[in-house]
Design a protein around this nucleic acid. Structure first.
Length: 594
RNA sequence: GGGGGUGUAGCUCAGUUGGUUAGAGCGAUCGCCUGUCACGCGAUAGGUCGAGGGUUCGAGUCCCUUCACUCCCGCCA
C-alpha cells in the first residue's frame, strides 16, 4: 500500500464510515474553536474535512500549523450529523476524525493567500506561480487545457493524422515576425532561430510522402504581447494534408472544432457549418478580417450619397471629393435612446483619434425626417436612398464616419464593437465561428509603396496558374484562409504553392530574385523540385481555443508558466545575464545601448 | 517606440479642499471559545505611502522626472 495515502481527498463517502484511513494534502483552511479544530485538507482531487479536539495529544501542534503546509493525516472516517453536512464538497457527508498527523512539507508565511477569491497583482501571481496554480480557478483552467489537448490528439489520430516532432533549433527566415536567435558554438558567428511555426517542415513532411501530419507545436515569435498573445511562445495545432483542396481542410477542421467546443463548453454554437466570408466582404461589412459574428451590426458604404445635390453636409462632401469614403452603422429601433447615448459614442470616437461619428435618427411625421445634429442636411429622397442601401427603417439610427479606407475600416470596426456593447447586443453565451477566405496574395506597403506578400509567400494563388496576371498582382487572390471565433483569430492556413517555377514568379513580384529564394528557402525549394504533392494545412492556436473554452480574457489564465508583458519569467528570473566564459565560447561580446 | 490605467502594511483596498500620530478587512503573533465550513470574540506587531526631485509653514494628496505591473497602438508571413 502507498505510504502517503489510502484515499484521495475527494474519495471518502458514507460507505467508508468506520474505516481507518490516511490522507495527504495541503492544509487549505483551519477553523479553530479552541478546543475543537476543523481542517480542510486539499489535494488535486478535492477537499476532506478533518477534525480533532483537545483530548488528542496532537491537538496543540496541529493548531499552530501554517496554512498550505503539506501533512499526512491518520484517522477514522466518521458520519456527519444531518445539520453539519456540507453539500459544496464531494466528501461533505463524512469527515475524518484525526488520530495522528505528520508534516511532509513545511510552509513559510504565505506571500499571497491560496484559499481566497481575491484578485492579485500579476507581479505577485507570476513570481509565486506555484502558489497561484494551487488556486481553484486557474488549477481547473490548466486541467481543462490538458484535457482539451488530449482530446484533440485523440481526434486527430482517429482522423488518420500522424504526430511528428520537428526541430526547435532551425534557421532564421526573412519573412514574418522577429526571430528568437540562438548562437552556435560550433559555427562561430552563425545563429539558429527558434521556429515561428513548423511551416517549412510540415510541407517537407508532405513531400516525404506522409499524407497527414499534425503536432501540438510550440511556436516562437519575438513580438510584443497582448492580452490574447503571449510574449515569446505559444502553441498551435499544426496540421497539413496532401492531395487536398481548401474544402477538404475545412471539413476536417470544422468537425474537430465543433466536437471540441461541444465537449468542453455548454455555450451554443451559432453555426456548425461555419459561414465563409471573403476578406474583402469582411473588411467592408465588419471593418476587420476577424469579425465577431455575435455582433449583429453591419457596416455599409454610403459614399455615393454624398455626391447628391440634395445632400448639403459639406464637411463629408468635400472629403469625399478628395477621395474619402463614408461608411455607416445602423442601430435598430434606437429612436428613444437618450441624447447621452449618441453623444457618448461620438465622444468615444474622438477619443479613438477619429474626427467623431456623425449621426441621425430616422423618424416619420407623415414624411421621413432625420432627427439629430446633422439630420437637416439630408433631403427625404436622400434618406430614402440611404434606407434602401442600408436596410434601415423608421426608428433606427445611423452613425456615419468619413475618411480614407484604412482609417475608416479601423474606426467603424471599433465603433461596431463599442455600439454593440453599449446596446448590449452580444450574446455572451454563444460561439460564432466563421471562415475568412480569398485573401489577396499581395498588398502594397503604405509607406514604401512596394508590393509585398500580404500573408504567406508559400500560398497557392487562385485562378489559372498557367495564366496569372502578374502585371496586376494586387488583384490576385490566394487559397488562404483564417478561422475566426467571437472576434478572435484562431488560426490561419493555406493551400500551398508546390510548384517551384510558380514560386519564383511570385517572389519576383515581391522583388526577390531566384538567387535570393534559392538561398533563403533552399530546403523547401529543393524539395519541391523532386515530386511534391499538392498539399495544404492550417494551424489553430491552442492557447486561444482554451481561452474561449475557459471563458478567460487573458492568455495567462490558461498558461501554466507565462511570462509577463515584458517577456520576463519572474519566477525563474528569465531572461538573465550569463557568465563571461559562456559568451566567449559563443564568440559573442555585448554592446549594450545606453 | 508611443498612449491610457494602476502603485498606501505580507495580501486586498480606503484615505475628503494639501493640515495633528496614515486606517480597515484578510494574513501573522498572543489570549478566549467543542460543530465550523469566509467560524466567532479580544489584543499585539507590522508602513521609505514605488523611487528621486520640486512647490509649500506643511505633501500619501499638487508639479516634474523615473521605475514596476497592466491594457491598447505600432509589431504579430
Amino acid at each position: 500500500m502507498n505510504k502517503y495515502r489510502s484515499h484521495k481527498c475527494n474519495e471518502l463517502r458514507k460507505i467508508d464510515v468506520g474505516k481507518k484511513v490516511f490522507l495527504s494534502g495541503w492544509i487549505n483552511k483551519k477553523r479553530d474553536h479552541g478546543n475543537l479544530l476543523f481542517i480542510d485538507l486539499r489535494d488535486n482531487y478535492g477537499i476532506t474535512q478533518c477534525i480533532i479536539d483537545k483530548e488528542n495529544s496532537f491537538f496543540s501542534n496541529l493548531e499552530k500549523i501554517q496554512l498550505e503546509t503539506v501533512v499526512k493525516i491518520n484517522g477514522e472516517v466518521v458520519n456527519r450529523s444531518e445539520d453539519t453536512i456540507n453539500k459544496e464538497i464531494q466528501t461533505g457527508e463524512v469527515e475524518v476524525s484525526i488520530e495522528s498527523f505528520s508534516i511532509l512539507g513545511i510552509c513559510k508565511e504565505l506571500p499571497m493567500p491560496v484559499f481566497s477569491d481575491q484578485e492579485y497583482s500579476e507581479e505577485i501571481r507570476l513570481k509565486y506561480r506555484f502558489l497561484d496554480l494551487r488556486r481553484k480557478k486557474i488549477h481547473e483552467n490548466i486541467i481543462l487545457r490538458s484535457k482539451v489537448i488530449s482530446f484533440i490528439r485523440d481526434e486527430m489520430n482517429k482522423l488518420g493524422f500522424l504526430e511528428f516532432q520537428t526541430p526547435i533549433l532551425t534557421s532564421s527566415s526573412p519573412e514574418g515576425a522577429r526571430d528568437f536567435l540562438v548562437p552556435s558554438r560550433l559555427n562561430p558567428g552563425k545563429f539558429y532561430a527558434l521556429p515561428q511555426a513548423p511551416q517549412q517542415f510540415k510541407q517537407l513532411i508532405m513531400v516525404s510522402g506522409f499524407d497527414r501530419y499534425f503536432q501540438i507545436a510550440p511556436c516562437f515569435r519575438d513580438e510584443d504581447a497582448r492580452a490574447d498573445r503571449s510574449p515569446g511562445e505559444f502553441y498551435q495545432l499544426d496540421l497539413e494534408m496532401s492531395f487536398v483542396e481548401q474544402e477538404d481542410i475545412f471539413k476536417v477542421v470544422e468537425k474537430l472544432l465543433v466536437n471540441t467546443f461541444k465537449k468542453f463548453s455548454n455555450k451554443k454554437l451559432m453555426f456548425e457549418k461555419f459561414p465563409k466570408i471573403s476578406y474583402s466582404d469582411s473588411m467592408l461589412k465588419y471593418g476587420s478580417d476577424k469579425p465577431d459574428l455575435r455582433n449583429p451590426l453591419i457596416i455599409n458604404d454610403i459614399t455615393e450619397i454624398f455626391s447628391r445635390e440634395d445632400v448639403s453636409f459639406e464637411i463629408f462632401k468635400n472629403l469625399v471629393k478628395s477621395g474619402s469614403h463614408v461608411r455607416c452603422i445602423v442601430t435598430k429601433n434606437t429612436k428613444d435612446k437618450p441624447r447621452s447615448f449618441f453623444d457618448g459614442v461620438d465622444k468615444w470616437a474622438k477619443d479613438q483619434g477619429a474626427s467623431g461619428l456623425a449621426y441621425f435618427t430616422l423618424e416619420s411625421d407623415k414624411e421621413i425626417l432625420a432627427k439629430g445634429p446633422i439630420g437637416k442636411f439630408f433631403s427625404k429622397e436622400a434618406l430614402t436612398k440611404i434606407m434602401k442601401k442600408t436596410k434601415a427603417q423608421i426608428g433606427d439610427s445611423i452613425f456615419m464616419a468619413c475618411g480614407k479606407q484604412k482609417d475608416l475600416e479601423k474606426i467603424t470596426s471599433l465603433a461596431r464593437e463599442k455600439i454593440a456593447n453599449d446596446l448590449n447586443l452580444i450574446d455572451e453565451n454563444t460561439f460564432a465561428f466563421c471562415w475568412i477566405v480569398d485573401y489577396p496574395m499581395f498588398e502594397k506597403d503604405e509607406q514604401s509603396g512596394k508590393i509585398q506578400f500580404s500573408h504567406n509567400p508559400f500560398s497557392m494563388p487562385q485562378g489559372d496558374i498557367n495564366n496569372l496576371d502578374l502585371e496586376n498582382p494586387l488583384g490576385m487572390l490566394a487559397f488562404q484562409y483564417d478561422i475566426v471565433c467571437n472576434g478572435i483569430e484562431l488560426s490561419s492556413g493555406a493551400i500551398r504553392n508546390h510548384i517551384p517555377e510558380l514560386m519564383y514568379k511570385l517572389f519576383s513580384v515581391a522583388g526577390y530574385s531566384k538567387k535570393h529564394v534559392d538561398e533563403k528557402f533552399s530546403g523547401m525549394i529543393n524539395a519541391l523540385s523532386y515530386g511534391a504533392p499538392p498539399h495544404g494545412g492550417i494551424a489553430p492556436g491552442i492557447d486561444r481555443i482554451v481561452m474561449l473554452l475557459a471563458n478567460e480574457k487573458n492568455i495567462r489564465e490558461v498558461t501554466m508558466f507565462p511570462m509577463n508583458q515584458n517577456a520576463q519569467d519572474l519566477m525563474m528570473n528569465a531572461p538573465s545575464e550569463v557568465e563571461e566564459n559562456q559568451l566567449k565560447e559563443l564568440n559573442l561580446t555585448l554592446k549594450l545601448k545606453k
